[in-house]
Design a protein around this nucleic acid. Structure first.
Length: 613
DNA sequence: GTTTCCTGTCATCGA
DNA sequence: TGTCGATGACAGGAA
């Protein structure tokens, strides 16, 4: 409802007003406030809007003045001997040295003045520039030596600092490239600076690092508006000179030198190539940069990228140095688990060496279950048969694993699933050892050594190895731990052969028994500990009883002593008719059941007692 | 080289 | 009768 519509409202009839009121109530129900229909409120909002626009214009004017002041400082740099042309190249320099802030402001003014309110613009500025500053501070804090190369990049440069820092630190940049060739030469010189390359690599990583959506968006905005500089210079130079590939080898040593501290040597080639490719395509906008990175990543002999991981280049790039080098090996789906299962490969040192890339020369599977059946059947010679599996038939084991991982292995979540195709170069390198292991005349300890060195997991590994050799589509863990019903159900569904069933039962029996033995020993130890505790408590009880016994005996002795003294004391108080004391030897005091005490002659008492007996 | 401890496995028994 | 858990006995690795 605008200001011109207000007079019309006075002409509205009461019916119309009621209708409007009904509509307003409906709007209120939909979430609209009463002030939305208040003209004065809207008028205040319009005034505020105008004030904001005025403030925005003032702010822009202030920024323009600041830009002019900054450009004037560039003139002062010329007086120090760093000449900056004022003609056509100066125009480039001005635009080159123009802070991205100015560029951004111009763009905001031209494109988004109508679309953004002042608060939104201020919020956008506040969101954008602190991020850039933070990025630069971060890059500067990493190494003070790269401070000057960092300043080269206007992409990441805080707009308000760029001209000041650029002048003293990079005189080469100040010298104007009068021709495209000069410009190209300038950038080629800049590219020879190792710190510059490191800085650019770091900034690329910072850019590609998926920190926060706001940071990414802010960078994208800055790059979109200031990458034209590289588009006009660096990319031209790169394309004119020799493209990326010709530049790359030239700077490989420096790049390696800067990257070896943070990257494993195996990743150096890929990363270096990636970073140099990025350098060559630095002038493109952010999207193109990401696209380039992705394409570079895909082209840099990284099979993982071509296997479905290219969907997330931002997440992929930071992780890439952590990936194991694939070399020239053909990527298989199982290789993804390889890095996480090194111990499994350690369990099969000889099987590792017996591997081959040739998956075409597979021996027929039905033969192996029969052999395995024999080996698993005879428990006494199980170990020897295991060794025979690995030694007498290295080709067979090789075929087992090759076929196992190339065929449809239904369940691949073994507790330690190993990738037999871990490293083809490794397997190829150890290939000559196959002849040694295939030598039957070798002493047994040589056969046993690699396996015994696997440690306490050798048994479990053996079962896993057998299960894999027989292509049992259930994990050893499941075989052992599944309840009987589920286990039988799974077994019935799997259509296993006789040998497979036998092996599965053996694995289950051994696994169960192993757990039972562990529990038994645990219980035994607990019993021993409990018995020891009980023994200690019994010893303490015995000592306590002995102490109580001694105390009781001592107290009884005291009581006897007291009673004797009391008896003598009472006896001494007694006297006959003549006043003579009674002799304790002739008389004794006895107490009857009713409590009376009588003096009885000892002879009588003794005679009476004898009679009683 | 021997001893001791730990662990896996087998054989056996009872539920 | 088959399965499973418990347990003694044995063997081998590791310290």
């Amino acid at each position: 409802m605008t200001e011109t519509e207000l007079p019309k409202m006075a002409k509205f009839s009461q019916q119309d007003m009621d209708l409007i009121d009904i509509l307003w109530k409906q709007d209120v129900d939909l979430g609209a406030g009463r002030e939305a229909f208040d003209y004065t409120h809207r008028q205040k909002e319009n005034e505020l809007q105008k004030e904001r626009e005025l403030e925005k214009e003032k702010q822009q004017q202030l920024q323009r003045e600041q830009e002019k002041a900054l450009l004037a400082q560039l003139h002062l740099d010329e007086e120090t001997g760093e000449f900056v042309p004022h003609a056509t190249p100066r125009k480039e320099t001005q635009t080159t040295a123009m802070p991205p802030e100015a560029t951004q402001n111009l763009i905001f003014t031209e494109e988004e003045e109508d679309a953004f309110t002042f608060d939104e613009c201020m919020q956008l500025l506040a969101d954008t520039f602190p991020l850039v500053e933070a990025i630069e501070i971060e890059s500067l804090s990493l190494d003070p030596s790269i401070l000057s190369p960092t300043d080269i990049s206007p992409v990441m440069m805080p707009p308000h600092q760029l001209p000041l820092a650029q002048a003293p630190l990079l005189p080469t940049l100040q010298s104007p490239p009068k021709t495209p060739q000069d410009l190209q030469q300038t950038w080629m010189e800049l590219l020879t600076i190792p710190e510059l390359q490191q800085c650019m690599n770091m900034q690329i990583e910072d850019m590609l690092e998926p920190t926060s959506s706001t940071a990414t968006s802010g960078l994208t905005e800055i790059q979109d508006e200031s990458y034209w500089f590289y588009e006009n210079n660096l990319t031209d130079a790169g394309s004119n000179t020799a493209s990326t590939d010709t530049v790359s080898p030239e700077y490989l040593p420096t790049s390696e030198g800067t990257l070896t501290s943070v990257l494993p040597p195996d990743d150096l080639n890929q990363t270096t190539q990636k970073s140099l490719d990025l350098n060559s395509t630095f002038g493109e906008d952010c999207n193109m940069c990401y696209m380039n990175l992705t394409s570079t990543h895909e082209n840099s002999a990284s099979p993982a990228a071509s296997s479905g991981h290219e969907g997330s280049p931002l997440a992929e790039v930071p992780k890439e140095p952590l990936l194991k080098p694939m070399g020239n090996s053909k990527f298989t789906p199982e290789e993804g688990c390889e890095s996480s299962m090194p111990e499994m490969m350690a369990d099969f040192p000889d099987s590792d060496s017996s591997l081959s890339l040739d998956s075409s020369s597979k021996s027929s599977l039905p033969e192996k279950p029969v052999n395995m059946d024999d080996s698993s059947d005879n428990s006494d010679t199980e170990e020897e048969m295991d060794m025979e599996e690995m030694e007498l038939k290295p080709r067979s084991a090789e075929d087992d694993y090759t076929e196992m991982f190339t065929s449809s292995f239904q369940v691949d979540d073994y507790d330690t699933p190993s990738s037999v195709t871990s490293s083809q170069s490794q397997s190829q390198g150890t290939k000559p050892d196959l002849a040694e292991y295939s030598d039957h005349s070798k002493p047994p300890f040589t056969k046993d050594k690699p396996k015994r060195s696997a440690g306490s997991r050798s048994r479990l590994s053996r079962d896993e190895r057998r299960a894999k050799a027989l292509q049992i589509p259930i994990t050893v863990d499941m075989i052992i731990n599944l309840p009987v019903d589920e286990f039988n159900e799974v077994m019935s569904k799997q259509q296993l052969s006789e040998a497979q069933l036998l092996l599965v039962r053996d694995i289950r029996r051994r696994g169960k028994n192993k757990v039972a033995a562990q529990n038994c020993r645990k219980r035994k130890m607990e019993n021993v500990v409990g018995l020891e505790y009980e023994l200690d408590s019994l010893k303490e009880e015995r000592d306590r009883l002995l102490r109580e016994k001694a105390e009781t005996r001592s107290s009884l002795q005291d009581m006897k002593q007291q009673l004797e003294s009391l008896y003598l004391e009472v006896f001494s108080l007694l006297s006959d008719e003549e006043g003579k004391p009674y002799s304790p030897r002739e008389f004794s005091l006895e107490q009857t059941s009713d409590g009376n005490v009588f003096l009885i002659p000892r002879t009588t008492t003794t005679v009476a007692k004898r009679h009683e007996k």
